[in-house]
Design a protein around this nucleic acid. Structure first.
Length: 413
DNA sequence: TCTGGGGTCCTAGGACCC
DNA sequence: TCTGGGGTCCTAGGACCC
């Protein structure tokens, strides 16, 4: 365990790079990475936020997550392109496949970040890192930063140093010089709220935090405080894990193109989301004991309501019934822009269970499974509830999974 | 028509029990 | 007439990540 060699491979401006590479490969004369550009959601659907920005766009102080409206005020001739998640997934997979040439110990941390354990390998880690960097650039058409250290935390921080297309190290003896001078918000798990708190007590750099008394931090910020204190001191020891962590919850949400102000439409939206979370949880072979509904008002105020069930469920109708009840109990009549349903406290479906409730629900579950099969085979909209007809509301609502409806492109990556 | 979607983990406070 | 003190379960909300 001592002296592992860990790589953190981070795709530079991932969505934007992938979009740029794809467009170049398909004959576009423009490289999005060289002009002020962003990948952004659809403003007409009220999804108008910045998902990724080019380095020239960054020069205009455009930040990921801000509204496109505000980005356009900073840079009026900004080029905006829509996201294509399924293509990004392919690009990501192509990269992971290449990384398997270098180590069997690979952890896919997100669509654009991978940890790789290069301990006890014959070749020099620095040479290998540069080889990986160059191969991704030449063979896949996009660039990455690679951070190297003895643990994942330091490797991840190192990959965030100067970009793009670079390899950096951050070994323990380099912490004082390379990490401690950084602003405290550059530390993993220090977000805007914690930055504010820390600043308010005179802690501005990672070094300031590292050299604050540990017990003082704990009494003040509790467990999360202890975590960031350890990180500031470079302490972290989790393994590079090949297996994806078990799923703890399944949820979908949707921001509607227009505010919903009546119960009937709200219920229909909840039904559409129930169809999606229900299908997903059945696909996982799991059931859930907790159903939670949350809503966001026109004024961006959000609140939630949840209920624990006596028996875990995976039935769309049961989920919907509870979601509707929860909604009716909490809704104060405000105009609503977003709805979400989340299922948690999951348990496996594969054991035999006998209860009265199961017998009652058996028909429902057989129906769900039949519909799932049809939808997987013929598309999500091949079977829809009649209540959605002419409603203007999608019969299955939720997230990026819908994108997979599009036919798969032949992979150029 | 400014502000997405999918997650994990933690804490506070109330209910309830002994 | 001064009101303990654990412990567990549940819910709501908030912080963080990509």
């Amino acid at each position: 365990m001592e002296s592992r060699i860990i790589f953190h491979i981070d795709v530079n401006s991932a969505y934007l790079s992938w979009e740029a590479a794809y467009r170049l490969q398909h004959g576009s004369p423009i490289d999005l990475r060289e002009i002020p550009s962003i990948v952004g959601g659809d403003q007409t659907k009220r999804h108008g936020i910045v998902l990724a920005k080019s380095i020239p766009a960054k020069k205009f102080n455009i930040i990921t997550g801000e509204s496109i409206h505000s980005a356009l005020q900073k840079c009026p001739n900004l080029t905006i392109v829509p996201p294509s998640y399924s293509r990004y997934m392919e690009a990501s997979e192509a990269m992971v496949d290449m990384l398997r040439d270098y180590s069997p110990y690979i952890q896919r941390y997100s669509i654009d970040e991978v940890f790789l354990d290069y301990s006890n390998m014959r070749k020099c880690y620095m040479e290998v890192a540069h080889e990986i960097r160059e191969r991704i650039h030449k063979e896949l058409g996009f660039t990455v930063n690679i951070g190297i250290s003895h643990n994942k935390l330091l490797a991840k921080i190192a990959s965030d140093f100067k970009k793009p297309n670079m390899v950096h190290t951050l070994f323990p003896h380099e912490i004082r010089e390379k990490m401690w001078p950084l602003p405290v918000e550059d530390l993993f798990m220090v977000g805007s709220r914690t930055k504010k708190k820390l600043n308010s007590r005179g802690i501005y750099t990672i070094g300031d935090l590292a050299n604050t008394d540990r017990d003082y931090i704990y009494s003040w910020l509790k467990k999360p405080g202890l975590l960031i204190w350890s990180y500031a001191n470079g302490i972290e020891s989790s393994p590079v894990s090949n297996l994806p962590p078990p799923v703890k919850s399944v949820g979908n949400s949707s921001t509607m193109p227009f505010d919903v102000d009546n119960k009937k439409e709200a219920h229909l939206v909840l039904l559409g989301i129930s169809e999606m979370v229900g299908m997903r949880i059945r696909d996982l072979g799991q059931r859930a004991r907790v159903v939670s509904v949350s809503i966001k008002t026109h004024d961006f105020f959000s609140y939630s309501h949840q209920r624990k069930l006596d028996t875990p469920t995976s039935s769309t109708n049961t989920i919907y019934g509870i979601a509707r009840k929860l909604f009716d109990e909490m809704w104060q009549g405000e105009a609503l822009r977003q709805f979400s349903i989340s299922l948690s406290e999951l348990s496996s479906d594969d054991f035999f269970q006998l209860s009265l409730t199961d017998l009652i629900n058996e028909k429902d579950e057989i129906l769900d499974k039949t519909i799932d099969k049809l939808r997987y085979k013929f598309g999500y909209n091949s079977v829809i509830r009649s209540s959605f007809l002419h409603s203007g509301i999608s019969p299955i609502i939720g997230g990026v999974i819908m994108e997979e409806e599009y036919p798969m492109m032949s992979s150029k990556f």
